[in-house]
């Protein structure tokens, strides 16, 4: 257990959960290193996630790098291929466009293309998501950019407990893992994880219900849970599934949920075209059509993310837009399953 945990039990802050996960893995395994832009600075990165780690573990384990995302990811690949377990921070998910070659063409392909001689056990942490008035180039959720790349895992937690367990799993994983942290979650609090490590690739039913399955990931799960509370007042019993990772995609858990509720809503913070929600509806149509009475998507418009509050707020999915969409689609007081 970390000696410098900033919260009492049950009050784990999301950013502290991430810090604790990195600290505990640095403590546990000497091959783990952590580097990125400003991560060793006193503040611990622009979102103050990692203060104190450089002082505690020294400059050989935790260090700052130039603003060179391609070199950062490429160096992580080379280090991972030769026995280290680098954790790097790409400051904003939008910047993931820069190291794309190294992540997609090097890290993701080593295991398969080498004939399984070795793999690249690296973790790329990144702050993603909109709602903070950061504009079009600091607000995207790049998980879908990578969802179609065999060989790389894409994880995005929705709670502090999950963040800690999944990040520890990511660092111990022998494959490259993108770990996407929604900016709007950094300050939320929640209980400590029940288990030290949470397996990657397992979705969670975070609320049980009989009438409708809402699937989301990251911040969208919290919006869905809030919407489910409101919809309960309409007499609608909503089940909420947290995917927790986009790749591997746990479609089995979604299919099992849809088999119970017969209705599916996927909520994605990103454009509908080419998004994970569209792909998920494809999987459910292909394999679970017989269980399906209805399926639809709440996503964003097909434009870049706007800046002004009066533009950004309605652009994004929220608890309110989910409730509105469900009511519009199903009608208030929908007849529930017997």
């Amino acid at each position: 257990m970390s000696a410098e945990r900033g919260s009492s039990p049950g009050q784990l802050e999301f950013r502290v959960a991430i810090r604790d996960a990195i600290a505990e893995e640095l403590e546990r395994d000497p091959s783990v290193v952590f580097f990125g832009e400003d991560v060793a600075a006193e503040q611990g990165g622009v979102f103050a996630v990692t203060p104190g780690l450089a002082e505690r573990f020294g400059a050989d384990r935790v260090f700052d790098t130039p603003i060179s995302e391609l070199a950062l990811a490429g160096a992580a690949f080379g280090a991972a291929a030769t026995g280290m377990r680098p954790v790097i921070e790409i400051m904003f998910g939008d910047f993931m466009a820069l190291p794309m070659d190294s992540l997609v063409n090097q890290a993701a392909k080593l295991w398969y293309v080498s004939g399984e001689q070795g793999s690249a056990p690296l973790v790329v942490r990144s702050a993603v998501g909109a709602g903070g008035r950061f504009g079009a180039m600091h607000s995207q959720s790049p998980g879908t950019w990578f969802q179609g790349i065999p060989g790389i895992k894409v994880v995005a937690p929705s709670s502090p407990g999950d963040a800690k367990g999944l990040l520890k799993a990511a660092i111990r994983d022998d494959n490259p893992v993108l770990f996407l942290e929604h900016k709007r979650l950094y300050s939320i609090k929640g209980p400590e994880p029940e288990h030290e490590v949470l397996p990657i690739g397992e979705a969670a039913v975070v609320r049980e219900g009989r009438d409708l399955t809402i699937v989301s990931i990251s911040k969208g799960v919290r919006d869905a849970l809030q919407a489910a509370d409101t919809l309960a007042g309409d007499g609608l019993d909503v089940e909420v599934v947290d995917l927790r990772s986009l790749r591997p995609l746990d479609s089995a858990t979604v299919l099992a949920s849809v088999a119970r509720t017969n209705r599916l809503l996927a909520v994605e913070e990103g454009p509908r075209t080419g998004g994970w929600a569209t792909g998920l509806l494809g999987v459910v149509s292909e394999r679970g059509l017989h269980d399906l009475d209805d399926a639809w998507i709440v996503a964003t418009e097909e434009t870049p993310i706007p800046y002004s509050p009066t533009l950004e707020d309605p652009f994004l999915p929220s608890a309110e837009t989910i409730v509105e969409s469900v009511r519009g689609r199903l009608g208030t007081g929908v007849e529930t399953a017997a």
């Binding site: 290193v33 490429g74 291929a81 030769t82 680098p86 090097q106 080593l110 001689q117």
Partner: peptide, 28 residues
């Protein structure tokens, strides 16, 4: 790729080898 002989990889995209060796030097 021939990890047994320390060959981290050969890269079909121009420049990729530079980063791979730079990273291997972190281990080195």
């Amino acid at each position: 790729v021939d990890l047994e002989h320390g060959l981290v990889g050969c890269f079909g995209i121009v420049g990729g080898s530079i980063a791979a060796a730079t990273g291997a030097a972190l281990s080195g």
